[in-house]
Design a protein around this nucleic acid. Sequence first.
RNA 1: GCCCGAGUAGCUCAGUGGAUAGAGCGUCUGGCUUCGGACCAGAAAGUCGGGGGUUCGAAUCCCUCCUCGGGUACCA
Length: 557
Amino acid sequence: MYEKLIHHIVADCKELFNADVQPIVSRPDEQFGDYACNVAMQLAKELGQNPREIAAALREKLQVVDGVKHVEIAGPGFINIFVEDEVLVGDASNISPYQHHEGKEVLVEFGNFNPLKTVHLGHLYQTVVYSAIARLFERSGATVHTISYHGDVGMHIAKAIWAIGEEVGWKPQDLKALEDGEESDVSMRNMKTIFGSYYAKGNEAYDADSSAAESIREVNRHIYDRDNQAVNDIHALCVKRSMQYFDTIYDELGVSFEKHYMESETAPIGTEVVKKNIGNVFEESDGAIIYKGEKDDLHTRVFLNSEGLPTYEAKDLGLIELKRRDYPGADKSVIITGNEQQQYFKVMLAALKHIHPEEAAKTEHMTHGLLSLTTGKMSSRTGNVFGAQSLMDATRAAVSKAFVDSEVQRDIYLAALKYTFLKSRIGGDIVFDVQESVSLEGNSGPYIQYAYARARSILRKKAASEDEITGLEADERSLVRKISEYEEVLEKATKERLPHHICTYLYELAQKFNAFYEKNRVLEHEREAQRLGIVHFYAEVLKDGLETLGIPAPEKM
RNA sequence: GCCCGAGUAGCUCAGUGGAUAGAGCGUCUGGCUUCGGACCAGAAAGUCGGGGGUUCGAAUCCCUCCUCGGGUACCA
Protein backbone atom coordinates (compact mmCIF):
# COMPACT_ATOMS: atom_id res chain seq x y z
CA MET A 1 0.00 0.00 0.00
CA TYR A 2 2.86 2.30 0.88
CA GLU A 3 4.29 2.46 -2.62
CA LYS A 4 0.83 2.69 -4.11
CA LEU A 5 0.02 5.76 -2.02
CA ILE A 6 3.25 7.48 -2.97
CA HIS A 7 2.55 6.73 -6.59
CA HIS A 8 -0.94 8.21 -6.36
CA ILE A 9 0.17 11.32 -4.52
CA VAL A 10 2.88 12.04 -7.07
CA ALA A 11 0.42 11.64 -9.94
CA ASP A 12 -2.28 13.69 -8.22
CA CYS A 13 0.05 16.58 -7.43
CA LYS A 14 1.15 16.62 -11.03
CA GLU A 15 -2.40 16.61 -12.30
CA LEU A 16 -3.89 19.08 -9.83
CA PHE A 17 -1.05 21.53 -9.37
CA ASN A 18 1.44 20.63 -12.09
CA ALA A 19 3.93 20.13 -9.26
CA ASP A 20 6.69 17.52 -9.02
CA VAL A 21 6.86 16.25 -5.49
CA GLN A 22 8.71 13.58 -3.60
CA PRO A 23 6.15 12.96 -0.91
CA ILE A 24 7.03 11.48 2.43
CA VAL A 25 4.45 8.99 3.51
CA SER A 26 4.85 8.04 7.11
CA ARG A 27 3.20 5.86 9.70
CA PRO A 28 1.79 8.34 12.15
CA ASP A 29 0.59 7.83 15.66
CA GLU A 30 -2.28 5.41 15.42
CA GLN A 31 -4.95 7.96 16.35
CA PHE A 32 -4.09 9.96 13.22
CA GLY A 33 -4.57 7.15 10.76
CA ASP A 34 -2.63 4.41 9.04
CA TYR A 35 -0.56 6.62 6.78
CA ALA A 36 0.10 10.34 6.80
CA CYS A 37 1.45 12.72 4.22
CA ASN A 38 2.66 16.29 4.64
CA VAL A 39 2.91 17.17 0.98
CA ALA A 40 0.16 19.80 1.20
CA MET A 41 2.20 21.91 3.59
CA GLN A 42 5.28 21.54 1.45
CA LEU A 43 3.38 22.71 -1.59
CA ALA A 44 1.63 25.57 0.16
CA LYS A 45 4.53 27.96 -0.15
CA GLU A 46 5.43 26.98 -3.67
CA LEU A 47 1.84 27.41 -4.88
CA GLY A 48 0.93 30.29 -2.65
CA GLN A 49 -2.17 28.48 -1.50
CA ASN A 50 -3.65 27.52 1.80
CA PRO A 51 -2.27 24.09 2.75
CA ARG A 52 -5.63 22.87 3.97
CA GLU A 53 -7.16 23.66 0.58
CA ILE A 54 -4.42 21.74 -1.17
CA ALA A 55 -4.99 18.87 1.23
CA ALA A 56 -8.71 19.00 0.54
CA ALA A 57 -8.16 18.70 -3.22
CA LEU A 58 -5.80 15.74 -2.71
CA ARG A 59 -8.26 14.19 -0.34
CA GLU A 60 -10.92 14.00 -3.07
CA LYS A 61 -8.48 12.06 -5.22
CA LEU A 62 -7.13 9.79 -2.51
CA GLN A 63 -10.50 8.90 -1.11
CA VAL A 64 -11.40 6.92 -4.21
CA VAL A 65 -8.18 4.92 -4.31
CA ASP A 66 -8.87 1.24 -3.96
CA GLY A 67 -8.22 0.15 -0.39
CA VAL A 68 -8.54 3.59 1.16
CA LYS A 69 -11.35 3.80 3.67
CA HIS A 70 -11.36 7.50 4.32
CA VAL A 71 -9.07 10.49 4.43
CA GLU A 72 -8.92 13.23 7.02
CA ILE A 73 -7.26 16.59 7.07
CA ALA A 74 -5.76 17.61 10.36
CA GLY A 75 -3.87 20.46 11.92
CA PRO A 76 -2.04 22.72 9.48
CA GLY A 77 -2.69 20.37 6.56
CA PHE A 78 -1.74 16.80 7.35
CA ILE A 79 -3.41 14.29 5.10
CA ASN A 80 -4.28 11.33 7.26
CA ILE A 81 -5.20 8.18 5.41
CA PHE A 82 -7.19 5.33 6.90
CA VAL A 83 -7.14 2.11 4.92
CA GLU A 84 -9.37 -0.95 4.81
CA ASP A 85 -8.52 -3.83 7.13
CA GLU A 86 -7.88 -6.11 4.16
CA VAL A 87 -5.10 -3.81 3.02
CA LEU A 88 -3.29 -4.15 6.33
CA VAL A 89 -3.82 -7.88 6.38
CA GLY A 90 -2.50 -8.12 2.84
CA ASP A 91 0.64 -6.17 3.67
CA ALA A 92 1.16 -8.11 6.89
CA SER A 93 1.09 -11.38 4.98
CA ASN A 94 3.58 -10.29 2.34
CA ILE A 95 7.02 -9.99 3.88
CA SER A 96 9.26 -9.73 0.85
CA PRO A 97 7.81 -7.31 -1.62
CA TYR A 98 10.82 -5.11 -2.25
CA GLN A 99 13.82 -6.21 -4.20
CA HIS A 100 15.68 -2.94 -4.63
CA HIS A 101 18.94 -4.55 -5.59
CA GLU A 102 17.57 -7.28 -7.78
CA GLY A 103 20.08 -8.27 -10.43
CA LYS A 104 22.80 -6.17 -8.84
CA GLU A 105 26.20 -7.53 -7.98
CA VAL A 106 27.56 -6.01 -4.79
CA LEU A 107 30.96 -6.40 -3.15
CA VAL A 108 30.98 -5.91 0.58
CA GLU A 109 34.42 -5.62 2.08
CA PHE A 110 35.94 -4.91 5.40
CA GLY A 111 39.48 -4.76 6.62
CA ASN A 112 39.54 -6.69 9.78
CA PHE A 113 41.53 -9.09 11.89
CA ASN A 114 45.20 -8.62 11.31
CA PRO A 115 47.42 -11.65 11.48
CA LEU A 116 49.66 -11.70 14.52
CA LYS A 117 47.54 -9.23 16.37
CA THR A 118 44.97 -9.80 19.05
CA VAL A 119 41.32 -9.63 18.10
CA HIS A 120 39.75 -6.86 20.10
CA LEU A 121 36.22 -5.70 20.68
CA GLY A 122 36.24 -3.31 17.76
CA HIS A 123 37.02 -6.15 15.38
CA LEU A 124 34.17 -8.18 16.75
CA TYR A 125 31.78 -5.25 16.41
CA GLN A 126 32.92 -4.57 12.88
CA THR A 127 32.44 -8.20 11.88
CA VAL A 128 28.87 -8.26 13.14
CA VAL A 129 28.02 -4.95 11.50
CA TYR A 130 29.61 -5.99 8.29
CA SER A 131 27.70 -9.24 8.01
CA ALA A 132 24.41 -7.46 8.73
CA ILE A 133 25.08 -4.99 5.91
CA ALA A 134 25.91 -7.82 3.56
CA ARG A 135 22.65 -9.53 4.52
CA LEU A 136 20.63 -6.39 3.90
CA PHE A 137 21.91 -6.32 0.34
CA GLU A 138 21.20 -10.00 -0.04
CA ARG A 139 17.74 -9.59 1.40
CA SER A 140 16.95 -6.94 -1.18
CA GLY A 141 17.88 -9.17 -4.07
CA ALA A 142 21.56 -8.48 -4.73
CA THR A 143 24.22 -11.06 -5.44
CA VAL A 144 26.66 -10.31 -2.66
CA HIS A 145 30.36 -11.13 -2.66
CA THR A 146 31.83 -10.99 0.82
CA ILE A 147 35.43 -10.00 1.07
CA SER A 148 37.85 -9.57 3.92
CA TYR A 149 41.15 -7.77 3.81
CA HIS A 150 44.00 -8.53 6.14
CA GLY A 151 47.15 -6.64 6.97
CA ASP A 152 49.86 -9.26 6.78
CA VAL A 153 52.61 -6.75 6.07
CA GLY A 154 53.78 -3.67 7.87
CA MET A 155 55.82 -2.76 10.89
CA HIS A 156 53.64 -4.60 13.38
CA ILE A 157 54.25 -7.84 11.53
CA ALA A 158 57.94 -7.11 11.13
CA LYS A 159 58.30 -6.59 14.87
CA ALA A 160 56.73 -9.92 15.73
CA ILE A 161 58.63 -11.79 13.06
CA TRP A 162 61.89 -10.25 14.15
CA ALA A 163 61.27 -11.34 17.73
CA ILE A 164 60.44 -14.88 16.64
CA GLY A 165 63.44 -14.96 14.31
CA GLU A 166 65.80 -13.83 17.03
CA GLU A 167 64.50 -16.47 19.36
CA VAL A 168 64.88 -19.36 16.96
CA GLY A 169 68.13 -18.07 15.46
CA TRP A 170 66.40 -17.49 12.10
CA LYS A 171 65.97 -21.18 11.54
CA PRO A 172 62.28 -21.63 10.92
CA GLN A 173 62.62 -25.40 11.15
CA ASP A 174 62.99 -24.78 14.84
CA LEU A 175 59.51 -23.39 15.01
CA LYS A 176 58.19 -26.80 15.96
CA ALA A 177 56.31 -25.40 18.90
CA LEU A 178 54.26 -23.21 16.62
CA GLU A 179 53.81 -25.76 13.88
CA ASP A 180 52.84 -28.75 15.94
CA GLY A 181 50.30 -27.20 18.23
CA GLU A 182 46.95 -28.85 18.17
CA GLU A 183 44.39 -26.97 16.19
CA SER A 184 41.78 -27.01 18.86
CA ASP A 185 40.13 -23.79 19.91
CA VAL A 186 42.14 -23.55 23.09
CA SER A 187 45.45 -24.08 21.43
CA MET A 188 44.56 -21.44 18.88
CA ARG A 189 44.09 -18.97 21.66
CA ASN A 190 47.45 -19.89 23.08
CA MET A 191 48.88 -19.23 19.68
CA LYS A 192 47.48 -15.74 19.74
CA THR A 193 49.00 -15.13 23.13
CA ILE A 194 52.33 -16.34 21.85
CA PHE A 195 52.14 -14.05 18.83
CA GLY A 196 51.04 -11.19 20.99
CA SER A 197 54.02 -11.57 23.27
CA TYR A 198 56.41 -11.68 20.31
CA TYR A 199 54.90 -8.50 19.01
CA ALA A 200 55.34 -6.88 22.42
CA LYS A 201 58.93 -8.05 22.52
CA GLY A 202 59.68 -6.68 19.07
CA ASN A 203 57.92 -3.43 19.82
CA GLU A 204 59.91 -2.94 22.98
CA ALA A 205 63.21 -3.65 21.24
CA TYR A 206 62.27 -1.26 18.43
CA ASP A 207 61.82 1.61 20.85
CA ALA A 208 64.76 0.79 23.11
CA ASP A 209 67.53 -0.37 20.84
CA SER A 210 68.47 1.41 17.65
CA SER A 211 70.33 -1.52 16.13
CA ALA A 212 67.32 -3.75 16.76
CA ALA A 213 65.15 -1.07 15.16
CA GLU A 214 67.36 -1.14 12.08
CA SER A 215 67.15 -4.90 11.75
CA ILE A 216 63.38 -4.78 12.22
CA ARG A 217 63.18 -2.32 9.33
CA GLU A 218 65.28 -4.74 7.33
CA VAL A 219 62.89 -7.56 8.14
CA ASN A 220 60.09 -5.27 7.01
CA ARG A 221 61.76 -4.80 3.63
CA HIS A 222 62.29 -8.56 3.31
CA ILE A 223 58.60 -9.09 3.94
CA TYR A 224 57.72 -6.81 1.04
CA ASP A 225 60.41 -8.11 -1.29
CA ARG A 226 59.99 -11.77 -0.33
CA ASP A 227 63.72 -12.23 -0.77
CA ASN A 228 64.68 -13.95 2.45
CA GLN A 229 63.70 -17.57 2.92
CA ALA A 230 63.71 -17.53 6.71
CA VAL A 231 61.53 -14.44 6.84
CA ASN A 232 59.19 -15.90 4.23
CA ASP A 233 58.82 -19.14 6.15
CA ILE A 234 58.15 -17.52 9.49
CA HIS A 235 55.73 -15.11 7.85
CA ALA A 236 53.84 -17.85 6.04
CA LEU A 237 53.53 -19.94 9.16
CA CYS A 238 52.36 -17.05 11.31
CA VAL A 239 49.77 -15.93 8.79
CA LYS A 240 48.49 -19.45 8.34
CA ARG A 241 48.12 -19.93 12.05
CA SER A 242 46.44 -16.57 12.51
CA MET A 243 43.95 -17.24 9.76
CA GLN A 244 43.12 -20.62 11.25
CA TYR A 245 42.46 -18.90 14.51
CA PHE A 246 40.28 -16.25 12.84
CA ASP A 247 38.29 -19.00 11.17
CA THR A 248 37.33 -20.33 14.58
CA ILE A 249 35.87 -16.92 15.43
CA TYR A 250 34.15 -16.53 12.08
CA ASP A 251 32.64 -20.00 12.46
CA GLU A 252 31.46 -19.18 15.93
CA LEU A 253 29.75 -16.03 14.65
CA GLY A 254 28.31 -17.74 11.63
CA VAL A 255 30.12 -15.35 9.31
CA SER A 256 31.78 -16.47 6.13
CA PHE A 257 33.76 -14.93 3.33
CA GLU A 258 33.96 -15.60 -0.33
CA LYS A 259 37.52 -14.33 -0.47
CA HIS A 260 40.30 -13.15 1.80
CA TYR A 261 42.74 -10.64 0.38
CA MET A 262 46.14 -10.02 1.94
CA GLU A 263 48.16 -6.85 1.93
CA SER A 264 51.13 -8.85 0.72
CA GLU A 265 49.16 -9.41 -2.50
CA THR A 266 47.93 -5.87 -2.89
CA ALA A 267 51.23 -4.17 -2.06
CA PRO A 268 53.15 -4.96 -5.27
CA ILE A 269 50.12 -4.22 -7.45
CA GLY A 270 49.42 -0.97 -5.67
CA THR A 271 53.05 0.06 -5.94
CA GLU A 272 52.89 -0.58 -9.67
CA VAL A 273 49.72 1.48 -10.06
CA VAL A 274 51.20 4.42 -8.21
CA LYS A 275 54.47 4.31 -10.13
CA LYS A 276 52.60 4.19 -13.43
CA ASN A 277 50.75 7.35 -12.52
CA ILE A 278 53.58 9.48 -11.26
CA GLY A 279 53.38 12.77 -13.07
CA ASN A 280 49.70 12.76 -13.91
CA VAL A 281 48.18 11.74 -10.57
CA PHE A 282 50.97 11.45 -8.05
CA GLU A 283 54.10 13.46 -7.53
CA GLU A 284 57.38 13.17 -5.70
CA SER A 285 58.07 15.11 -2.56
CA ASP A 286 60.84 14.61 -0.01
CA GLY A 287 61.61 11.22 -1.53
CA ALA A 288 58.04 9.99 -1.13
CA ILE A 289 55.31 9.65 -3.72
CA ILE A 290 52.29 11.64 -2.69
CA TYR A 291 48.86 12.68 -3.84
CA LYS A 292 48.06 16.32 -3.24
CA GLY A 293 44.56 16.27 -1.90
CA GLU A 294 44.42 20.04 -1.58
CA LYS A 295 43.09 20.32 -5.12
CA ASP A 296 40.02 18.40 -3.93
CA ASP A 297 39.78 20.35 -0.68
CA LEU A 298 41.43 17.46 1.11
CA HIS A 299 44.92 16.93 2.43
CA THR A 300 48.11 15.44 1.05
CA ARG A 301 48.85 11.81 1.69
CA VAL A 302 51.84 9.58 1.07
CA PHE A 303 51.29 6.59 -1.22
CA LEU A 304 54.86 5.31 -1.46
CA ASN A 305 57.17 6.20 1.40
CA SER A 306 60.72 7.40 1.00
CA GLU A 307 61.95 3.81 1.19
CA GLY A 308 59.80 3.05 -1.83
CA LEU A 309 57.41 0.92 0.18
CA PRO A 310 53.68 1.25 -0.33
CA THR A 311 51.58 2.75 2.44
CA TYR A 312 48.03 1.64 3.10
CA GLU A 313 46.95 4.11 0.43
CA ALA A 314 48.84 2.35 -2.31
CA LYS A 315 47.84 -1.07 -1.01
CA ASP A 316 44.22 -0.02 -1.18
CA LEU A 317 44.64 0.96 -4.80
CA GLY A 318 46.15 -2.48 -5.33
CA LEU A 319 43.16 -4.10 -3.66
CA ILE A 320 40.86 -2.23 -5.99
CA GLU A 321 42.77 -3.62 -8.96
CA LEU A 322 42.32 -7.13 -7.58
CA LYS A 323 38.62 -6.60 -7.06
CA ARG A 324 38.28 -5.30 -10.60
CA ARG A 325 40.06 -8.41 -11.85
CA ASP A 326 38.04 -10.85 -9.75
CA TYR A 327 34.64 -9.19 -9.97
CA PRO A 328 34.42 -7.35 -13.26
CA GLY A 329 30.63 -7.31 -13.15
CA ALA A 330 30.24 -5.61 -9.78
CA ASP A 331 27.76 -2.74 -9.74
CA LYS A 332 28.67 -1.48 -6.32
CA SER A 333 31.55 -1.85 -3.93
CA VAL A 334 30.89 -1.18 -0.28
CA ILE A 335 33.81 -0.82 2.10
CA ILE A 336 33.32 -0.69 5.84
CA THR A 337 35.92 0.78 8.19
CA GLY A 338 36.17 2.77 11.40
CA ASN A 339 35.45 6.52 11.45
CA GLU A 340 39.09 7.40 11.81
CA GLN A 341 39.65 6.41 8.22
CA GLN A 342 36.95 8.67 6.83
CA GLN A 343 39.16 11.49 5.63
CA TYR A 344 41.88 9.11 4.57
CA PHE A 345 39.39 7.34 2.31
CA LYS A 346 38.32 10.55 0.69
CA VAL A 347 41.88 11.20 -0.40
CA MET A 348 42.37 7.65 -1.62
CA LEU A 349 39.11 7.82 -3.59
CA ALA A 350 40.04 11.21 -5.01
CA ALA A 351 43.24 9.69 -6.35
CA LEU A 352 41.30 6.70 -7.64
CA LYS A 353 38.99 9.04 -9.51
CA HIS A 354 41.91 10.04 -11.71
CA ILE A 355 42.84 6.43 -12.38
CA HIS A 356 39.47 4.62 -12.67
CA PRO A 357 36.67 7.18 -12.45
CA GLU A 358 33.92 4.59 -12.88
CA GLU A 359 35.37 2.53 -10.03
CA ALA A 360 35.47 5.54 -7.73
CA ALA A 361 31.84 6.26 -8.59
CA LYS A 362 30.60 2.85 -7.53
CA THR A 363 32.67 2.67 -4.37
CA GLU A 364 30.82 3.48 -1.20
CA HIS A 365 32.78 3.95 1.99
CA MET A 366 30.83 3.62 5.19
CA THR A 367 32.20 3.99 8.66
CA HIS A 368 31.33 2.91 12.14
CA GLY A 369 32.26 4.28 15.52
CA LEU A 370 34.48 3.12 18.29
CA LEU A 371 33.46 0.60 20.85
CA SER A 372 34.29 1.17 24.47
CA LEU A 373 33.28 -0.17 27.83
CA THR A 374 31.50 1.70 30.60
CA THR A 375 33.73 0.17 33.21
CA GLY A 376 37.10 1.30 31.95
CA LYS A 377 39.00 -1.15 34.08
CA MET A 378 38.44 -4.34 32.21
CA SER A 379 42.12 -4.98 31.71
CA SER A 380 43.66 -7.22 34.29
CA ARG A 381 46.99 -6.69 36.02
CA THR A 382 48.70 -9.06 33.65
CA GLY A 383 48.02 -6.63 30.84
CA ASN A 384 45.40 -8.70 29.09
CA VAL A 385 42.81 -6.38 27.69
CA PHE A 386 39.16 -7.27 27.62
CA GLY A 387 39.07 -8.44 24.06
CA ALA A 388 36.69 -10.11 21.68
CA GLN A 389 37.27 -13.51 23.19
CA SER A 390 36.53 -12.26 26.70
CA LEU A 391 33.21 -10.79 25.63
CA MET A 392 32.26 -13.91 23.73
CA ASP A 393 33.12 -16.05 26.75
CA ALA A 394 31.23 -13.81 29.16
CA THR A 395 28.14 -13.84 26.94
CA ARG A 396 28.28 -17.58 26.51
CA ALA A 397 28.59 -18.07 30.26
CA ALA A 398 25.59 -15.85 30.96
CA VAL A 399 23.50 -17.75 28.43
CA SER A 400 24.40 -21.20 29.70
CA LYS A 401 23.62 -20.09 33.23
CA ALA A 402 20.20 -18.68 32.31
CA PHE A 403 19.23 -21.42 29.84
CA VAL A 404 20.66 -24.46 31.58
CA ASP A 405 18.57 -27.06 29.77
CA SER A 406 18.19 -25.32 26.46
CA GLU A 407 19.26 -27.15 23.34
CA VAL A 408 19.76 -23.87 21.52
CA GLN A 409 22.26 -22.12 23.77
CA ARG A 410 24.40 -21.28 20.79
CA ASP A 411 21.48 -19.57 19.05
CA ILE A 412 20.69 -17.52 22.13
CA TYR A 413 24.30 -16.62 22.62
CA LEU A 414 24.55 -15.34 19.05
CA ALA A 415 21.38 -13.31 19.53
CA ALA A 416 22.65 -11.70 22.72
CA LEU A 417 26.01 -10.84 21.19
CA LYS A 418 24.93 -9.62 17.77
CA TYR A 419 21.88 -7.71 18.88
CA THR A 420 23.92 -5.74 21.37
CA PHE A 421 26.02 -4.42 18.51
CA LEU A 422 23.26 -4.03 15.97
CA LYS A 423 20.63 -2.20 17.99
CA SER A 424 22.53 1.09 17.91
CA ARG A 425 22.80 3.22 14.83
CA ILE A 426 26.01 2.59 12.89
CA GLY A 427 28.33 5.58 12.82
CA GLY A 428 28.53 6.89 16.34
CA ASP A 429 30.72 5.54 19.08
CA ILE A 430 29.15 2.91 21.25
CA VAL A 431 29.75 2.62 24.93
CA PHE A 432 28.53 -0.55 26.41
CA ASP A 433 28.25 -2.36 29.62
CA VAL A 434 29.28 -5.98 29.59
CA GLN A 435 26.62 -6.84 32.14
CA GLU A 436 23.96 -5.25 30.02
CA SER A 437 25.20 -6.69 26.77
CA VAL A 438 24.98 -10.08 28.37
CA SER A 439 21.51 -9.35 29.67
CA LEU A 440 18.73 -11.39 28.16
CA GLU A 441 15.87 -9.12 29.12
CA GLY A 442 14.44 -5.91 27.78
CA ASN A 443 15.61 -4.73 24.40
CA SER A 444 17.78 -7.72 23.65
CA GLY A 445 18.18 -10.41 21.04
CA PRO A 446 16.93 -13.19 23.33
CA TYR A 447 13.76 -11.19 24.08
CA ILE A 448 12.88 -11.27 20.41
CA GLN A 449 13.83 -14.90 20.05
CA TYR A 450 11.64 -15.66 23.02
CA ALA A 451 8.76 -13.78 21.45
CA TYR A 452 9.18 -15.92 18.34
CA ALA A 453 9.35 -19.14 20.34
CA ARG A 454 6.13 -18.23 22.14
CA ALA A 455 4.38 -17.60 18.85
CA ARG A 456 5.62 -20.89 17.47
CA SER A 457 4.43 -22.63 20.59
CA ILE A 458 0.90 -21.39 19.96
CA LEU A 459 1.06 -22.43 16.33
CA ARG A 460 2.28 -25.89 17.30
CA LYS A 461 -0.88 -26.38 19.33
CA LYS A 462 -3.05 -25.40 16.42
CA ALA A 463 -1.89 -24.41 12.97
CA ALA A 464 -3.06 -21.21 11.34
CA SER A 465 -5.74 -21.89 8.76
CA GLU A 466 -6.07 -20.41 5.33
CA ASP A 467 -9.24 -18.61 6.37
CA GLU A 468 -9.57 -14.97 5.60
CA ILE A 469 -8.92 -12.58 8.40
CA THR A 470 -11.93 -10.29 8.58
CA GLY A 471 -13.72 -7.94 10.90
CA LEU A 472 -10.66 -7.00 12.92
CA GLU A 473 -11.21 -5.95 16.51
CA ALA A 474 -9.36 -2.85 17.68
CA ASP A 475 -6.47 -4.68 19.37
CA GLU A 476 -6.12 -7.08 16.48
CA ARG A 477 -6.12 -4.28 13.95
CA SER A 478 -3.47 -2.40 15.85
CA LEU A 479 -1.22 -5.46 15.85
CA VAL A 480 -1.82 -6.20 12.16
CA ARG A 481 -1.05 -2.59 11.37
CA LYS A 482 2.30 -2.92 13.11
CA ILE A 483 3.09 -6.17 11.31
CA SER A 484 2.28 -4.52 7.99
CA GLU A 485 5.00 -1.93 8.57
CA TYR A 486 7.76 -4.49 8.19
CA GLU A 487 8.29 -4.03 4.48
CA GLU A 488 8.79 -0.29 4.92
CA VAL A 489 11.24 -0.83 7.76
CA LEU A 490 13.24 -3.24 5.64
CA GLU A 491 13.32 -0.76 2.81
CA LYS A 492 14.53 2.01 5.06
CA ALA A 493 17.21 -0.15 6.66
CA THR A 494 18.47 -1.22 3.25
CA LYS A 495 18.50 2.24 1.68
CA GLU A 496 20.22 3.82 4.64
CA ARG A 497 22.42 0.78 5.31
CA LEU A 498 21.28 0.90 8.92
CA PRO A 499 20.30 -2.45 10.38
CA HIS A 500 19.35 -0.94 13.74
CA HIS A 501 16.02 0.14 12.22
CA ILE A 502 15.13 -3.55 12.07
CA CYS A 503 16.09 -4.07 15.72
CA THR A 504 14.00 -1.14 16.86
CA TYR A 505 11.03 -2.35 14.88
CA LEU A 506 11.23 -5.98 15.93
CA TYR A 507 11.40 -4.95 19.54
CA GLU A 508 8.39 -2.66 19.24
CA LEU A 509 6.50 -5.37 17.42
CA ALA A 510 7.26 -8.01 20.03
CA GLN A 511 6.24 -5.61 22.79
CA LYS A 512 2.99 -4.89 21.03
CA PHE A 513 2.28 -8.56 20.60
CA ASN A 514 3.12 -9.36 24.21
CA ALA A 515 0.72 -6.67 25.35
CA PHE A 516 -1.99 -8.03 23.06
CA TYR A 517 -1.38 -11.55 24.21
CA GLU A 518 -1.56 -10.57 27.84
CA LYS A 519 -5.17 -9.54 27.60
CA ASN A 520 -6.50 -11.45 24.61
CA ARG A 521 -6.80 -15.19 24.27
CA VAL A 522 -5.86 -16.76 20.99
CA LEU A 523 -6.78 -20.40 21.40
CA GLU A 524 -10.28 -21.41 22.39
CA HIS A 525 -11.67 -18.06 21.55
CA GLU A 526 -14.48 -17.31 19.10
CA ARG A 527 -11.99 -15.47 16.90
CA GLU A 528 -9.39 -18.24 17.16
CA ALA A 529 -9.01 -18.72 13.40
CA GLN A 530 -8.41 -15.05 12.73
CA ARG A 531 -6.05 -14.68 15.66
CA LEU A 532 -4.03 -17.71 14.69
CA GLY A 533 -3.61 -16.14 11.29
CA ILE A 534 -2.30 -12.95 12.87
CA VAL A 535 0.09 -14.92 15.09
CA HIS A 536 1.35 -16.67 11.99
CA PHE A 537 2.11 -13.39 10.18
CA TYR A 538 3.74 -12.04 13.31
CA ALA A 539 5.98 -15.08 13.67
CA GLU A 540 7.01 -14.90 10.03
CA VAL A 541 8.07 -11.27 10.38
CA LEU A 542 10.07 -11.95 13.54
CA LYS A 543 11.84 -14.83 11.88
CA ASP A 544 12.62 -12.91 8.72
CA GLY A 545 13.82 -9.90 10.68
CA LEU A 546 16.09 -11.93 12.93
CA GLU A 547 17.55 -13.83 10.03
CA THR A 548 18.19 -10.64 8.11
CA LEU A 549 20.23 -9.51 11.09
CA GLY A 550 22.13 -12.77 11.07
CA ILE A 551 20.45 -14.03 14.22
CA PRO A 552 18.90 -17.50 14.31
CA ALA A 553 15.22 -17.91 15.20
CA PRO A 554 14.82 -21.18 17.14
CA GLU A 555 11.37 -22.77 17.46
CA LYS A 556 11.87 -23.59 21.13
CA MET A 557 14.18 -22.19 23.73
C1' G B 1 45.34 26.39 13.69
C1' C B 2 42.45 23.90 9.88
C1' C B 3 39.04 19.68 8.48
C1' C B 4 35.46 15.85 9.98
C1' G B 5 32.14 13.53 13.77
C1' A B 6 29.44 13.59 18.34
C1' G B 7 26.61 16.15 22.66
C1' U B 8 18.62 13.88 23.89
C1' A B 9 15.97 11.15 31.24
C1' G B 10 20.73 8.94 36.61
C1' C B 11 23.17 5.27 32.76
C1' U B 12 22.97 3.15 27.54
C1' C B 13 20.52 4.62 23.26
C1' A B 14 16.10 5.55 19.43
C1' G B 15 13.93 9.73 17.09
C1' U B 16 17.55 13.58 11.74
C1' G B 17 11.75 19.05 8.98
C1' G B 18 5.84 17.50 11.43
C1' A B 19 1.11 16.41 15.65
C1' U B 20 1.72 15.73 23.62
C1' A B 21 10.38 14.13 22.51
C1' G B 22 10.37 7.79 23.11
C1' A B 23 12.64 2.91 24.71
C1' G B 24 15.85 -0.38 27.70
C1' C B 25 18.54 -0.57 32.32
C1' G B 26 18.12 1.55 37.20
C1' U B 27 14.26 3.56 41.04
C1' C B 28 9.06 3.15 42.89
C1' U B 29 3.78 0.68 42.65
C1' G B 30 0.80 -3.43 40.96
C1' G B 31 -0.08 -8.34 38.33
C1' C B 32 2.19 -15.28 37.86
C1' U B 33 -1.39 -23.09 39.92
C1' U B 34 -3.32 -19.50 33.41
C1' C B 35 -2.38 -20.13 25.17
C1' G B 36 5.68 -20.10 27.37
C1' G B 37 6.06 -14.33 33.50
C1' A B 38 12.88 -14.42 29.82
C1' C B 39 6.35 -11.21 30.38
C1' C B 40 2.67 -7.28 31.23
C1' A B 41 0.19 -2.65 33.50
C1' G B 42 1.45 1.97 35.85
C1' A B 43 4.61 6.12 38.30
C1' A B 44 8.72 9.39 38.95
C1' A B 45 12.59 11.30 35.86
C1' G B 46 14.14 15.98 29.98
C1' U B 47 16.39 24.25 29.62
C1' C B 48 17.10 17.79 23.34
C1' G B 49 25.23 21.32 25.33
C1' G B 50 24.42 27.38 25.42
C1' G B 51 22.84 31.52 22.35
C1' G B 52 20.98 33.53 17.76
C1' G B 53 18.51 32.64 12.93
C1' U B 54 15.44 30.22 8.76
C1' U B 55 10.30 28.00 8.67
C1' C B 56 3.25 27.62 9.25
C1' G B 57 6.29 24.08 12.21
C1' A B 58 13.28 22.77 14.57
C1' A B 59 16.18 17.70 18.86
C1' U B 60 16.43 17.62 13.34
C1' C B 61 18.42 22.92 8.69
C1' C B 62 21.94 27.61 8.97
C1' C B 63 25.41 30.81 12.02
C1' U B 64 28.15 31.22 16.55
C1' C B 65 30.20 29.65 21.13
C1' C B 66 31.33 25.50 24.74
C1' U B 67 32.75 20.31 25.70
C1' C B 68 34.51 15.55 23.99
C1' G B 69 36.51 12.20 20.12
C1' G B 70 39.04 11.55 15.38
C1' G B 71 42.05 13.31 11.22
C1' U B 72 45.74 16.72 9.67
C1' A B 73 52.96 13.24 4.78
C1' C B 74 55.84 8.69 5.04
C1' C B 75 50.58 4.00 10.90
C1' A B 76 46.13 1.55 9.57
